[in-house]
């Protein structure tokens, strides 16, 4: 039996693609390779005996090659699925994507209908989970207007959804300056009025700014609170349904749930 080779990648789509490229190029046999994504803050996964650990260094060129191959040799739809999967919070996503691509490169665009395959199913699951969260944030995200007229939003998503929600808000608020900040990953979408959005790491962003309410801001916050409280029908009060529809984990940054 050959020693298993485990490609350990950082938690980024570029690094996962690089790892897949390297594994592929090694010609070591897909069954003997595995892609593993490093969990940034947690302890390393239990090491397996008889395995060789290879730490993958992100190489953008390789990553772009993989991306292009997926788009041309499989399909745009498959590429979007893989991206969503790579931005999901699943710890198994690296290897799921790898297996999905092995099948995809042999079957072509038909692969997305091949639900009988476990990896195809799992990619669907990951994508569904991410899409679900994206959709929630389109509604649940709240902006606060700073004194300098910049709209600021904080979110704490399970999946890395920033780049998936950015197009929606840039289109909708094209004349606004806004920042959407991911508290968990310390990354942000920055949008300037009239320009397209950019994605950036934001370790240095002064998030205390988020807590400074202008007077005008307080006025609208309290108007919204009033509306939110009065619009509920007493005779139909149903907190369970409310909690099911607006899960607690989204509420931290929602103005109306703050008191």
């Amino acid at each position: 039996m050959l020693t298993k080779r485990i490609y350990v990648c950082e938690n980024s789509i570029e690094c996962i693609f690089t790892g897949i490229y390297d594994a592929w190029a090694s010609n070591y046999g897909h069954d003997n390779n595995r892609i593993q994504v490093e969990e940034s803050n947690n302890e390393p996964e239990t090491m397996e005996l008889f395995s060789e650990y290879i730490h993958v260094k992100t190489d953008n060129e390789k990553a772009i090659k993989v991306a292009n191959s997926i788009r041309t040799k499989i399909s745009e739809e498959a590429f979007q699925m893989v991206c969503s999967a790579a931005w999901s919070c699943s710890s198994k996503k690296g290897d799921i994507i790898y297996r999905f691509l092995i099948l995809g490169f042999s079957m072509g665009s038909k692969v997305v209908n091949h639900m009988g395959d476990q990896n195809v199913m799992m990619i669907f699951e990951l994508q569904r989970n991410v899409t679900y969260e994206v959709h929630h944030f389109l509604g649940f995200l709240r902006f606060i207007e700073s004194d300098s007229n910049i709209l600021l939003a904080k979110i704490k998503p399970q999946n890395d959804v920033l780049r998936l929600i950015a197009p929606h808000f840039s289109d909708r608020l094209s004349n606004e300056n806004f920042i959407i900040y991911d508290e968990k990953r310390k990354s942000a979408i920055v949008h300037r009025s009239g320009y397209s959005w950019i994605y950036t790491l934001a370790d240095h962003l002064d998030i205390n700014k988020f807590e400074e309410y202008s007077e005008k801001e307080q006025e609208f916050t309290s108007l919204w609170q009033t509306f939110f409280d009065t619009i509920a029908i007493e005779e139909r009060r149903n907190y369970k349904l409310q909690r099911n529809n607006a899960p607690l984990r989204f509420r931290n940054n929602m103005t109306e749930f703050k008191n």
Binding site: G139, F140, I233, R237, Q242
Partner: peptide, 9 residues
């Protein structure tokens, strides 16, 4: 898009 859910769900 749903933006929030009132106390009646």
């Amino acid at each position: 898009i749903c933006h929030t859910f009132s106390a009646d769900g």
